[in-house]
């Protein structure tokens, strides 16, 4: 009997598989396909203070081995998430979840985290720092170590729950940003968010996405994410959630060998609503083939 359980920031998870934010809503759509209680946890739709419609459509485009999205943080706002979405999720999912939090100022991050932290089924705050800072000319918080550390400190000041910083890959030195988050008190690092990309429609000679650019996800980004997880594992001691193009139980194990404690599955859920279920069911066999009695023993095992 293979032990699939892992401990993430003090939280016991039955397995390391977590649907990534923005690909799983607040769980309701997937509960119509299967019993989502088999998941390790789930990361909720990114939440901002004000309700957001997001970007104009089209906001989805296909790419080789993946997709672009420019949804633009569509969400009903933190009040509705705390009062409605999270309690509704608690009715169908009995485990603690990751609340994914966005913000356009340090103060907003703190207010959003304080409100979501008060929700009983929130186990971890996952802070998306790929948001533009309205007080700094729209530069993303996550684009430099100082900005990332400032958000970490602002959030840690208002919650006792574990804080995981979700990093953008659109930077020159992701390890430096992870280190800055750790020094500022982060309890974990999640990486990677989507890679910035675009497509052009040959017939119209215009970008396919109304927003021009969007975030690339899917199997195409897996090796990039894996390399970054490796680099961050070498740079910090806090646990890592590996995210980016994971589509199979083998990918999960590879991410863990690179240094991940838990693994998020994103775009795969959109192509195959049963992706997480399929991965979880395949994990025991893959572990057996690898001679691993405990899946958690794989974490970092590729580093000599």
């Amino acid at each position: 009997m293979t032990d699939l359980s892992v401990t993430l920031c003090g939280l016991h998870l039955d397995n390391p598989v977590i649907p990534a934010s923005g690909t799983f809503g607040f769980g309701q759509e997937f509960a119509q396909w299967y019993d989502i209680n088999i998941l390790g946890s789930l990361s909720c739709k990114g939440t901002t203070e004000a309700p957001r419609f997001g970007n104009p459509t089209p906001r989805i485009a296909e790419t080789p081995g993946g997709m672009l999205n420019a949804v633009g943080l569509q969400n009903p706002g933190v009040e509705a998430v705390a009062a409605h979405e999270l309690p509704e999720l608690a009715k169908i999912f009995r485990k603690p979840v990751l609340a994914n939090v966005g913000g356009f100022s340090l103060e907003e991050y703190a207010r959003n985290c304080e409100k979501l932290s008060a929700c009983p089924n929130v186990g971890i705050l996952e802070v998306n720092i790929s948001c533009p800072n309205v007080h700094a000319g729209g530069k993303n918080f996550g684009s430099d170590p100082e900005g990332a550390a400032a958000v970490t400190r602002a959030v840690k000041a208002v919650t006792d729950k574990p804080v995981v910083m979700k990093l953008s890959p659109n930077v020159t030195d992701i390890a430096a940003i992870a280190r800055a988050c750790e020094e500022a008190g982060a309890d974990g690092i999640c990486l990677i968010n989507t890679l910035l990309g675009m497509r052009i429609d040959l017939k119209t000679r215009r970008p396919i996405l109304a927003n021009r650019t969007g975030g690339l996800s899917g199997p195409a980004v897996f090796p990039v994410a894996l390399r970054m997880v490796w680099d961050v594992y070498e740079a910090v001691k806090i646990p890592i959630i590996g995210c980016g193009g994971v589509s199979s139980a083998e990918d999960v194990c590879e991410m863990m060998m690179a240094g991940a404690t838990a693994v998020e599955v994103g775009a795969a859920n959109l192509k195959d609503p049963f992706a997480c279920k399929r991965i979880i069911e395949a994990l025991p066999d893959v572990c057996r083939q690898l001679g691993a009695d405990k899946l958690s023993s794989l974490t970092g095992s590729a580093h000599s």
């Binding site: 759509e29 997001g54 459509t57 089209p58 959109l270």
Partner: peptide
């Protein structure tokens, strides 16, 4: 009609006001 990611409501890629 709209470009869709998932087709079952999860990604909210096809939202209209």
């Amino acid at each position: 009609e709209e470009r869709m990611g998932c087709g079952f409501g999860a990604c909210v890629g096809c939202t209209m006001e």
